[in-house]
Design a binder for these strands. Structure first.
Length: 941
DNA sequence: CAGTGAGCGAGCTTCCGCTTGACTT
């Protein structure tokens, strides 16, 4: 479609000016990239960035355009009953930017969408197309390395938009929205508000929880072996030097047990025929070998070879930055971002280990200069793609440019310097020769005084050519592990040479539970399971930390008890969704869609509404799981965890975790690691003093009065009996309830006095008789009130509880109960007329904060609205929104569950939808596998 | 997690992936 563009660059001229007049607007994703590319393209091109995605489904109610507010599906942003059509709005923070792009486009004669060549990039391009509505020719421009040649080639070889790829992205987006926005509310209802669930975060949380479960179930095993130090100097070795350590391998040909021979339950694996030694066996054997003669029984030499590690991608960089620089995932990404923006490194969010040709030659150039030609392989090394679902839109993370700056040449310092150095070394090393050397295994035999043949082994490693290890050695997550460049030298020995055991000792070991995840190892695990993307790894950690699903203990990620409850709920009721294979299967489907071999709709339908799987099994859809089957989820059950070996239950309550033993309860510190909650720990918690404040003794009863914090806030209560010292609980439960009372609002837990407390405990106060019935005054759930039989009246102030007279009480009871809010409270502010109703609008203060009303309709002020500055227009808008939404007026008498309510609501809304839609939609029968365009729901703003 | 007697104007929380500033503490 577009005219041919200048085939510039052949003569090496710096300018790649387009032929003819006019300019092309090139849109990439990142501003830093735009800057670089602008330099490569030269005149005739204007390069701007989209700054990531420009549109998405509305995040919250405030972002839903008014005309969709009444729709049942508006909350989801996906019209689930209308072929899962998504509703897109321009992100609030992108409105100005989109306007700018439109203005730039007005001056261009061609639009080149140069977003990344992956699923998300293709989608960004499509959204740009939808939003900018260009009238000039549009082409898709793609490249996956940012070098002058690659960019110029890309500008000359554009293609059309790949709509199948866009559909695949949209399917992914819709699925994630449905999962997140349907399952999270289940957690709000069953566990705690503000929690969240999602395809990625829930699996990440589950991984951490499962690891903790393994730790809880773990029983260590003890095993012993022998460690010897042999002296080879009498063996005729030329240097005569040396002693070396060796470990006992077998006794009478039977291998000595090591850690991996044991199960996590502390038992020996049944398939192992090994010699398991305890302390006594080991010590006695050591005794019998004392003074025995030893000799070398075999020497085995093998060549050692090690190839360099692939250049960094996001996850490997995060891991090494964690191991070597102590940076969290987030910190590593922030430092990398700064390096990227200032032109020191290539893009840091990538799943590719590929180097561009120019990067390869830059690396080789550095190798030659810094290490010499001996370290340079004949051919450049190519790294195969490591990651299964890699989309490879970018290069590996490497120093930027066609020639690399050494760390010293950059002038950087601090973490930027250290991370650059890491990246630089890793990149250069990736183009160096293998390390080579020799590994040696020596076996040594000796016979004990009881004629047992004990065989020891020692291993050595000698590196004769360091190759890439000269530049870079990868760190390890296990601090005890040997790094790749670690040498262990053994004296040279011949078979049959006699050895003297200098030292021979029994050594005890215990198996260890699997280590907790760190940020870096969790990210690694997620990548291996194809969960999450380079741009999100750091924020996944952030999310599960924010939600309180995990907390950090040093670098370890420890799951909270809350996480156990949430994971328990998801596993039992949404098993498919937290299946580790779920995302991997999703990726397959998305790939099929992208290739045009599968359709999006049937798949989404089955996910949401249920149906037959390809295997012919029937599957319950998400809609039913969060709807009709909601009542199957027992909050009590999913929030309970047994404390191993006890009849104590750990329960996750709205106010944190607590222990429950037959109704006796005690708080559990929020930062207690679940694997530390043993029987002993639980007993200790029950025994602990609760930390209540003692106010003194009630002179009348002699009981101690304490102030504590409870479910309903601060309160005081009396202590009925001294806790029996070390004794058992009193069995005969002739329970006398202690008197309790909430503090008045005017009181404070820290300052409340014994006098206050006694007054509170004296309640309810008998005010007197009214109409022949006794009236009492007390404090309750809704504040101070009077009670007369079954009738009641609220009081104005707490003090009235003590001061009100029978006469005043009678007056209150003579008046009917106040209905609605108290009359005659002046409005906070008066506004103008509501154009819709013609009534005067006022702002009032209510139970839920300020709201605007025209006398008929009430609407709360939203976030960002202020009483003082609210204008008439905004007020009218709020009222209009409220009207649009509510059937409000007369509600059917509230049935039992939320399910029935939502079904009813959906019924009416669905009707509206169909009438509206029949005009707007229907006609353009959607082509399968094509993204929606003509009937797109958008926020025309 | 202490324990009691209204009637009412709710609204909001949340997902995953792309990307940076512009704000305030």
């Amino acid at each position: 479609m577009p005219a041919t563009k200048g085939s510039a660059g052949k003569n090496g001229s710096k300018d790649n000016a387009r032929q003819g007049e006019g300019t092309a607007l090139v849109i990439v994703e990142s501003p830093a990239k735009a800057k670089t590319i602008a330099g490569y393209l030269g005149r005739g091109y204007v390069v701007e960035s989209s700054i990531g995605h420009i549109r998405d489904m509305p995040t919250k109610a405030a972002e839903i355009p008014a005309k969709y507010k009444g729709q049942a599906w508006a909350r989801l942003g996906v019209d689930v009953d209308g072929d899962f059509e998504p509703l897109y709005v321009v992100n609030t923070d992108k409105k100005a930017h989109v306007k700018k792009l439109k203005e730039l486009m007005a001056e261009a004669d061609e639009l080149l969408l140069a977003t990344d060549e992956d699923r998300e990039g293709e989608a960004i391009a499509w959204h740009l197309l939808q939003e900018l509505k260009p009238k000039i020719p549009v082409r898709r421009m793609v490249f996956n390395e940012i070098t002058k040649d690659a960019i110029r080639r890309a500008a000359d070889n554009t293609r059309d938009l790949n709509t199948r790829l866009v559909t695949a992205q949209e399917t992914r987006r819709i699925l994630d929205r449905l999962y997140g926005y349907e399952v999270s509310p289940v957690l709000w209802k069953k566990v705690m508000p503000k929690l969240s669930a999602g395809r990625v975060q829930s699996v990440a949380t589950r991984l951490v929880v499962e690891r903790e479960r393994e730790r809880i179930a773990f029983t260590p095993a003890e095993y012993w072996d022998l460690k010897a130090v042999f002296d080879a100097s009498g063996s005729g070795a030329p240097d005569g030097a040396g002693t070396f350590p060796a470990g006992l391998m077998s006794v009478d040909g039977r291998r000595v047990a090591v850690g991996r021979d044991f199960t996590s339950r502390g038992t020996l694996r049944s398939d192992r025929d090994v010699h398991h030694m305890d302390e006594q066996t080991a010590r006695e054997l050591a005794g019998r070998l004392d003074g025995a003669a030893f000799a070398v029984s075999s020497v085995e030499r093998k060549p050692y070879r090690r190839s360099p590690y692939a250049p960094f991608r996001t996850t490997t960089m995060q891991q090494e930055a964690s191991r070597k620089l102590g940076l969290s995932s987030k910190q590593a990404m922030q430092v990398a971002q700064r390096l990227y923006e200032n032109g020191y490194i290539t893009y840091m969010r990538t799943d590719s280990t590929t180097l561009s040709d120019s990067a390869v030659s830059a690396s080789r150039d550095q190798v030659r200069r810094l290490y010499g030609g001996d370290y340079l392989p004949d051919k450049p090394r190519v790294y195969a793609k490591k990651v299964k679902n890699a989309q490879e839109a970018h290069e590996a993370i490497r120093p930027a440019g066609d020639t690399f700056r050494t760390p010293a040449e950059t002038g950087l310092n601090g973490p930027e310097f250290r991370l650059y150095e890491l990246i630089w070394k890793r990149t250069v090393a990736s183009q160096m020769k293998d390390a080579a050397g020799e590994s040696v295994t020596v076996r040594i035999e000796g016979t004990s005084s009881a004629d047992e043949v004990a065989e020891f082994t020692a291993t050595g490693k000698v590196i004769t050519f360091h190759g890439f290890l000269k530049a870079y050695v990868e760190g390890s997550d296990d601090p005890a592990a040997d790094l790749d460049d670690r040498e262990r030298r053994l004296p040279s020995m011949e078979e049959g040479a006699p050895l003297k055991a200098e030292n021979l000792e029994a050594e005890g070991h215990a198996t260890r539970p699997p280590a907790r995840y760190t940020e870096a190892t969790l990210v690694k695990e997620l990548e291996e399971r194809e969960i999450g993307r380079p741009s999100t790894y750091a924020s996944i950690i952030g999310t599960i930390l924010d939600r309180g699903y995990v907390f950090k203990k040093g670098t370890a990620l420890v799951p909270s008890f809350l996480a156990f409850a949430v994971v328990q709920l998801l596993e039992r009721h949404f098993g498919n969704l937290v299946d580790y294979e779920f995302t991997a299967r999703l990726e397959d489907v998305l790939d099929d869609i992208a290739r045009g071999e599968a359709e999006s709709l049937p798949w989404l339908r089955r996910f949401y509404f249920g149906g037959q799987t390809s295997g012919g099994e029937s599957e319950v859809g998400l809609k039913e799981l969060v709807g009709d089957q909601l009542s199957d989820i027992d909050p009590k059950e999913i929030s309970s965890l047994p404390v191993p070996g006890t009849d104590i239950l750990l329960r996750v309550g709205r106010y944190g975790p607590y222990l429950d033993r037959d109704g006796e309860r005690v708080n559990v510190p929020e930062d207690l690691a679940p694997d530390e909650l043993t029987k002993d720990k639980a007993e200790e918690l029950f025994a602990q003093p609760s930390g209540d404040r003692e106010l003194g003794t009630d002179p009348e009863t002699g009981r101690t009065i304490v102030a504590k914090t409870g479910r309903f806030g601060p309160y005081i209560t009396e202590v009925l009996e001294e806790p029996a010292e070390g004794g058992t609980k009193p069995k005969g439960k002739a329970k006398v309830k202690p008197r309790t009372s909430s503090l008045f609002k005017s009181m404070d837990l820290d300052t409340v006095t014994l006098e206050d407390a006694l007054r509170l405990l004296s309640l309810p106060r008998v005010v007197g008789e009214v109409d022949g019935e006794e009236v009492t005054a007390q404090n309750g759930r809704f504040g101070p009130y009077l009670k007369k039989g079954t009738d009641s009246r609220s009081l104005e102030t707490e003090e009235q509880i003590f001061s009100i007279t029978p006469e005043q009480a009678k007056e209150l009871f003579d008046k009917p109960k106040q209905r609605g809010r108290r009359a005659a409270v002046p409005p906070l502010r008066e506004l103008g007329q509501d154009p819709a109703s013609g009534a005067k609008m006022v702002i009032k203060d209510g139970r839920f904060g300020p709201y605007v009303t025209d006398g008929e309709v009430n609407a709360s002020l939203r976030k960002g609205d202020e009483v003082d500055s609210l204008g008439d227009l905004r007020a009218a808008e709020l009222l209009a929104e409220r009207r649009a939404k509510a059937p409000a007026k007369k509600k059917a008498p509230a049935k039992k569950s939320t399910t029935t309510k939502s079904t009813a609501a959906k019924g009416t809304a669905a009707k509206k939808t169909t009438t509206k839609k029949s005009t707007a939609k229907k006609a353009p029968a959607k082509k399968t596998g094509e993204p929606r365009s003509s009937s797109q729901k958008t926020d025309e703003s």
